[in-house]
Design a protein around this nucleic acid. Sequence first.
DNA 1: ATGGGAATAGACCGATCAGTCTATTTGTTC
DNA 2: GAACAAATAGACTGATCGGTCTATTCCCAT
Lengths: 195, 195
Amino acid sequence: MSTIQPKRDLILDCARQLFAREGFHATGVDRILDQAGVAKMTLYNHFGSKEQLIVEVVDQASLQLVGLMDSWTNASEDPFEQIILLFEGLAGWFDSPDRCGCLIQAAAAEFSDPGSPVGQAILRHQERVQAFLTRITRATECPDASGLAARIGLLFAGAMTAARICRCREPADEARKAAAILLEDACRRAELELE
Amino acid sequence: MSTIQPKRDLILDCARQLFAREGFHATGVDRILDQAGVAKMTLYNHFGSKEQLIVEVVDQASLQLVGLMDSWTNASEDPFEQIILLFEGLAGWFDSPDRCGCLIQAAAAEFSDPGSPVGQAILRHQERVQAFLTRITRATECPDASGLAARIGLLFAGAMTAARICRCREPADEARKAAAILLEDACRRAELELE
DNA sequence: ATGGGAATAGACCGATCAGTCTATTTGTTC
DNA sequence: GAACAAATAGACTGATCGGTCTATTCCCAT
């Protein structure tokens, strides 16, 4: 058997794909087992329950997405450019043919209780993203960096939501334009303040 | 029996509430029947299948939301003000305690196939919203009205997505600020073009 | 009063759900 | 080769799923 990756990661990967394509509740444990070619007890020994598997899938997807955002923005030192790069990266991400939008948004839609383990994982993701965005907007030295980060985050989330429906990169491109306008505005206000 | 509204609307209403709170796949038909106090055959005589019920719930929610958007913006004749009113209305909408975000976004997350009946209903909604927004942005007589509408739509969707997670009106307030900046920018470009 | 359409309760269907259990095999490491 | 942990197949549980069917009851209009 040529399992390069341990079974645990294999299950995590197959589960992520199926959850993204079919949804969390609509994907039965047996479907994941078939896809991964793995016995039932292997899954339950590793994760304990379907809910815990979902939590780990969401956490992994969150770290992966934030990692992507980081790699997209690494190409520049200028925080203004970084935000543009962020939306360009997002647009490129949507070009992947098998992509069905953001897994974490899907999880938020299916698990609305913020107190549940899955809800907690979603909140962790939200905090990660906002922390990432705030780190960039603070570097712009514009006033109201956190407000700017919140607005950029709204565009980011909106682009993901729209891309799930229209399945194209246009929302991300439009979000990039909107972000550029918001940045220009914040920049202009900063200059006014200096005078 | 004091059924003021016909059973059909009662079922539709209970289903909408349960779908919004628990999700579509997670809500069994029997739960809807219990909540509505209605026999199983009554539901199946009216809707034929759970999927068709979902389609009608989504369509009803779409018409209701667009109707709300219309009523929020009716308070002014000025298209710039109308967009601000739109996000103020949205913020007020999120103040409702039992609200768990946008039912149509949840549907989009659970039914990713755009060819399915539910997917079609979601596309119809998306077209309704964009048509509504474009009608307003065209009245601003700014250049690139459809682009502006798309950007406003992204903020609108982003605010809904964020509100589902944080369960507060802040995202809508922040989206309103962002929309105001986008409008100001579009307005400024229009004036520059006139000179 | 009576006929008919709408709604009722509830049994029933096969399929699938998440999760458990056991007995066996596999691969690795002393 | 012995020991041991990991993974295997597959039977099994009770619950729930969406959906069907029947027989009965209710209410309203003629």
